[in-house]
């Protein structure tokens, strides 16, 4: 049988809640992503706003049944600081160690996704209501932001 097809590169973007999912879908449907990473197939999933450990646990559960080339697990730091006001650095290290065992990259979101996006876009995209529309309206700004560039770099490194 002639090998006439190439397997796709695969990625899972896993977030804490619905807000991340909207953002991820915006990213992978953007012209920039499609043109730069045409060989990538990206799946999007999310937990439901739980503790950092639970988000990672659910991400591990999902990836154990699948074999992605890249897994990015987005975790908010505000919950980490709240749950572990003193030992958050240690817990962060432990979670990173656990994630690396399963080939999962943790993307720490300073405070939470809402704040991260707000900072990245100079306040243009913040809260969940109407997020889809505002992402579309300020797409250039979002795609040029450091937050987005960091995500794209992870794809570029494996392409």
């Amino acid at each position: 049988m002639v090998k006439k097809r190439r397997a796709n590169k695969t990625c899972l973007l896993y977030g804490e809640g619905g807000r991340e999912k909207i953002f991820f879908n915006f990213l992978i449907k953007s012209r920039k992503f499609k043109s730069e990473f045409p060989q990538w197939v990206v799946s999007v999933d999310n937990a439901c706003g739980q503790s950092c450990g639970d988000v990672l646990k659910k991400c591990i559960n999902i990836t154990s049944e699948r074999e992605y080339d890249l897994v990015l697990c987005f975790i908010d730091t505000d919950k980490l600081y709240e749950d572990f006001p003193r030992g958050h650095k240690k817990v962060k290290g432990q979670l990173e160690k656990k994630a690396s065992k399963y080939n999962i990259n943790i993307v720490w979101q300073e405070k939470n996704h809402e704040d991260e996006l707000c900072r990245a876009t100079g306040g243009k995209v913040c809260s969940k209501p109407g997020m889809k529309g505002r992402l579309k309206k300020h797409s250039d700004c979002v795609l040029r932001s450091g937050f987005t560039k960091n995500i794209f770099k992870k794809f570029r490194d494996l392409s």
């Binding site: 097809r5 397997a7 796709n8 590169k9 695969t10 899972l12 197939v41 799946s43 049944e65 699948r66 074999e67 992605y68 080339d69």
Partner: peptide, 12 residues
Amino acid sequence: NYYKKYLSGAYG
């Protein structure tokens, strides 16, 4: 592992 690879979207 075809099962895991298919579920991750590698084969289309």
